[in-house]
Write a protein that binds this DNA or RNA. Structure first.
Lengths: 226, 226
DNA sequence: CGTGTGGTTGAAACTGGTCAAATTCGGTGG
DNA sequence: CCACCGAATTTGACCAGTTTCAACCACACG
């Protein structure tokens, strides 16, 4: 349903390109809540999430700070077109990242024509996050939006088992609400209604099992029903 | 308030780069409603709007067709990262475009390192449209959103005169409503309320005069008042 | 001067926001 | 291991804003 995973960057590169870029990468760790990238600072590094999850916050034109997206294991953070990060990134839980120097990536870009475009095309988060966000929040009831949200996250991180697709949600309800553009109460109610309808289960606060993916997709479609 | 205009591509290029790219450009015209770009076809051309306005439609992941943005005189259409257009473009009124061969642009990109990135950074509509759209529709009442919409369009196309900033709106109310994610009636009512509050005037259906820009900006800010 | 399209306005039903209270969860210390 | 605390979440009641459906208006066109 949503665009192919950002995780496919590696496979889009040749062996030589990969070696060039991945050379000199450093491992870094962040605790929950720690800032990984500060908005409006020089985009000097590019991160690859090895473990954990990250929240992207963007300052909108009129000064409002809004949640622009969530990134997970395998995703890239900081691969942006501009010279300055147009967003902040913050660890949602204990997070392990691989840090690449941006200059190395750019140098490789000069060496291999089209590499930069290919990287941007496969892994540009600035853009894909934006699109996914619009896909999720445009149209329908709170329930629809939450449905689309869960399906999107599920596609990116979910693991299927006997009972359904298990999706971990390391963010709080309030953060989901901010992402959806609703109050946290409405979001909570939407969870409850999906639960009552038997489309999802919530064994813990921070995880959801999509029991009936078909029904959820139906709810996620325009206008809550059909 | 919104990001610098897309029209600045030219100034981001050197004389030589410009000559190379603009060489072989063709002039084309479209009537209102005509399709300029068909979604999911090979991104073979890049257009520069000389006259008129264009509507961008995007097929969302679940098949819903939604209005993703509007482009005006001076804007570029079709400068995208991917190989296929991820959107359709349709003329809103009688439109004159300059059509560039994409291969020419790519060749120039190979010749001048970093050119492609610079072009994408200054003129990538796929992305900027997306961001502007989010900026406009996230949070607040219909009135706020319409306010942000008018300010955005005004920044891009408005002409100031004695009475205020004159903004032409070549799209119908329904299309504005779709963009904002509301019913056309709510959008119409929002127009009326802004009119009654004395922040705008609507001399014709297809143009708005922003009389009190400060007040409009205030309304556009979070939550319709303060 | 009718006709059609696009725009505006009105009234009732409904959704989601707000405020407040109740509940559950996760961790801490006894 | 259990009781307790604070934070996160859920639920309830009420209200404001939005949608819906329907009627009406205004302008452009023949």
């Amino acid at each position: 349903m949503f665009e192919p995973s950002i995780r496919q960057l590696s496979s889009a590169l040749s062996e030589e390109e990969r070696r060039l870029i991945f050379h000199g990468a450093k491992f870094v760790r962040y605790e929950p809540g720690e800032v990984i990238i500060e908005a409006d600072t020089t985009a000097g590094a590019l991160f690859h999430i090895r473990e954990g999850a990250v929240k992207i916050e963007r300052v909108h034109a009129d000064g409002r700070m809004l949640i622009a997206g969530f990134l997970f294991e395998g995703d890239f953070v900081g691969l942006c077109i501009a010279d300055q990060y147009p967003f902040s990134a913050r660890a949602l839980d204990a997070t392990a990242l691989c840090r690449f120097d941006r200059r190395t990536v750019q140098e490789a870009g000069r060496r291999f024509p089209g590499l930069e475009r290919r990287m941007l095309a496969t892994a540009s988060n600035e853009f894909r996050q934006c699109q996914d966000h619009l896909d999720v929040i445009m149209g329908g009831s709170v329930e629809s939006k939450l449905g689309r949200f869960l399906l999107m996250i599920g596609e990116r991180t979910g693991v299927s088992d006997a009972c359904g697709r298990v999706v971990s949600l390391p963010m709080r309800r309030e953060e989901i609400a901010d992402y959806l553009g609703h109050s946290l109460e409405s979001t909570s109610r939407a969870f409850s209604r999906l639960r009552e309808a038997g489309t999802i289960k919530t064994p813990h606060r921070s995880s959801v099992v999509i029991v009936d993916e078909f029904k959820l997709a139906q709810i996620a479609g325009r206008h809550g029903a059909t």
